[in-house]
Simulated scan of single mutants.
Amino acid sequence: MHAITRMVGPARCATFKMQMTSVTFLYTRYKKMEACITPIPEGAQQLQKFPKRLFAVPPRILEGTPGVTEEVYEEDKKLWKKHVDTYKRVNKLIGKSRYRNIMDMNAGLGSFAAVLDSPGSWVMNVVPTISERNTLGIIYERGLIGIYHDWCEAFSTYPRTYDLIHASGVFSLYQNKCDLEDILLEMDRILRPEGTVILRDNVEVLNKVRRTVTGMRWKSKLLDHEDGPLVPEKLLIAVKTYWVGREEGSSS
């Protein structure tokens, strides 16, 4: 650019750059586009119509997916049916129109979203990039939506997008990767005021989380596992309260 400035002079440099931009735009506009739609894989013909495909065994599991067999898939469905039933007993609004935008931060096989049974809601299924199993394809074949994400980074969405955030094992997964405070702050950003968070994790991890969310003005409650108090995995149910800062000089 310095050479261009010397040739055409500072006054004409901006005009020259605009002309170059126009040429680039015209070239891009009239360039013949290539086919970019991914063809349907052969196994897709086996997919059932929605909503039956939510619970049918996805073709890629039948064809062979490392770490995921038909038995593992069926057990996962049963497990999350039990978990979601517990959530609905604790919070009667789950499955109703109260929670329209829902996120599962560690979706696994997508069974949480599948058994939620809420036609008025949609679930963003997130597969952490550091997960041991790549399950996003299975989620797609169940008729669900999903995305890869590293929870040490910000999630690409507007603030206050989600009404309910579900996170199973997220903090244990990222325990030695990044600070849990950073993950919680990102959750706070994308959760609407008076939105709900359901955390399922080891009790030691959840105790640390609870101390942090108290400082964030979340109301939280620690609950035992469905199978009893001796199970180290617990539930932390939290609600992001609506609050505003006071102006200077105002009485408390």
Rank of each mutant, 00 (worst) to 15 (best):
K52V: 12
T65F: 02
E63R: 10
E63Q: 13
G43L: 00
L93E: 15
Y73T: 02
T86N: 12
G64P: 13
W80K: 09
L47V: 06
K88D: 00
K88G: 02
R60F: 03
D104H: 06
K82C: 01
M20G: 14
Y30R: 12
P59K: 13
K17Q: 13
I102N: 05
Q19T: 11
M105I: 11
T65L: 10
Q19D: 13
K81R: 06
M18R: 12
V68F: 02
R89N: 10
W80Y: 15
I61E: 02
I61A: 01
A35P: 02
F25A: 13
V68S: 01
L62Y: 00
R53Y: 03
S22C: 09
E70A: 12
M18E: 06
K77A: 04
Y73W: 10
I40G: 06
G67L: 07
I102C: 07
A107Q: 04
R89Y: 05
N101W: 06
G67Q: 06
D104A: 04
L93A: 13
G67W: 05
P66F: 02
L62H: 01
V57W: 00
F25W: 07
R29I: 07
K52I: 09
Y87C: 12
D76T: 09
K82P: 01
K32E: 08
E34A: 15
T38F: 03
K49D: 13
P58K: 04
G67S: 11
S97D: 05
T38H: 10
E71G: 05
P39K: 05
T28R: 14
I37A: 14
T65E: 01
T38P: 00
L47R: 08
M105N: 10
Y30S: 06
C36R: 15
K52Y: 01
F50K: 03
S22E: 09
C36Q: 15
E74M: 10
T24Y: 05
V57F: 00
R100M: 13
K92T: 12
E71I: 12
D104N: 03
G67N: 04
Y27D: 09
R98L: 10
K81Y: 04
I102T: 01
P58H: 04
R53Q: 06
G95C: 13
E75L: 03
R53D: 00
T69M: 08
E70M: 05
A56W: 00
P59Y: 02
L54E: 02
K96L: 12
D85Q: 11
R60L: 12
D85M: 02
R100H: 12
L54D: 00
V23P: 00
R53K: 11
L93H: 07
